[in-house]
């Protein structure tokens, strides 16, 4: 079952005359991990960033098509591209969280970082905050390392810990979809392993889309893989199919490293 359906979606950046995404159609399956792969500049980030409309922070971009998100209550799909009101944007972003390439700890304590999304969502109750922060940190395998220094600045954590903190922060607000944009490309192999494990565990609770340029990573953790090239979606299939018998020549060239 899908949680998001991207339909004939095209995207053009402000001040650029050619589209960065050309009529992409792609589902994001519920409680599965979908990997977006492709050479850099092919539009992976652009697509991912359209899925919670973070692009809209910058004016002038043009897009076309539909991106539908499942409304859990009504069971219907709603087109997120039609959102105009501030409070609907806020709701969308609470439902569709995002983790970036570089860890983005906020300039505040570890606890406050994780509690941030909850606080702005209106949760004031101290014990509830504590519980949910603890759950999120445990869920991100960070609790053991930080439980005795929750009030310390998040800047003091290592890169890998910071990235897990950002995941905890995103998870704490109980999103339905999590978007990862090359979450491990700035990390060492050990931290990368920890994060990969974490992402796999997370799919019990959320649906995941992850951009990666690391093919092993895609094959290790994802259920579905989409291969993109120059703004086009070339091939989308179960991960094992993509890696074992790709239908398109371009896909094969890319995954075997014979590209370009």
């Amino acid at each position: 079952m899908s949680v998001m359906k991207i339909k004939k979606f095209s995207f053009t950046y402000a001040g650029v005359d050619h589209p960065s995404l050309k009529s992409i159609t792609l589902p994001i399956e519920k409680n599965k991990i979908t990997a977006l792969i492709g050479p850099s500049g092919c539009g992976k980030s652009t697509l991912l960033r359209s899925m919670n409309r973070i692009h809209d922070l910058y004016p002038g971009n043009k897009y076309d098509g539909k991106i539908e998100l499942l409304n859990e209550e009504t069971g219907k799909f709603e087109n997120i591209l039609e959102i105009k009101k501030e409070n609907e944007f806020i709701k969308l972003r609470q439902k569709v969280g995002m983790i970036f390439q570089k860890p983005t700890p906020f300039p505040m304590s570890i606890f406050d970082n994780v509690a941030y999304g909850l606080r702005i969502a209106g949760i004031k109750n101290k014990t509830e905050l504590k519980d949910r922060v603890e759950t999120a940190l445990k869920g991100s395998a960070l609790w053991k390392e930080v439980h005795d220094r929750l009030d310390k600045s998040a800047m003091g954590l290592s890169g890998g810990q910071q990235q897990r903190l950002c995941i905890a922060r995103a998870v704490a607000v109980k999103p339905e979809v999590l978007l990862f944009d090359e979450p491990t490309s700035a990390l060492d192999p050990i931290s990368t392993g920890a994060i990969e494990e974490l992402i796999v565990e997370l799919k019990n609770d959320v649906s995941i889309a992850i951009v990666t340029h690391n093919m092993q990573q895609a094959s290790r953790i994802s259920d579905y893989t989409a291969f993109m090239y120059l703004g086009d979606l070339i091939e989308y299939d179960k991960t094992e199919n993509i890696f074992l018998n790709p239908k398109e020549k371009q896909t094969e060239d890319y995954i075997t490293g014979r590209f370009g």
Binding site: I54, R93, Q101, F106, P107, Y116, G117, I120, R169, A170
Partner: peptide, 29 residues
């Protein structure tokens, strides 16, 4: 203030005021 830092706050559903108050001001204090 790095753009990603602001984006990650927006991605949590923060309003512009909250991003300015909680992220930009503390970061560039």
């Amino acid at each position: 203030t790095p753009a990603v830092l602001k984006e990650s706050a927006y991605a949590l559903g923060a309003t512009k005021f909250e991003v300015i108050k909680d992220i930009i001001f503390p970061y560039s204090k």
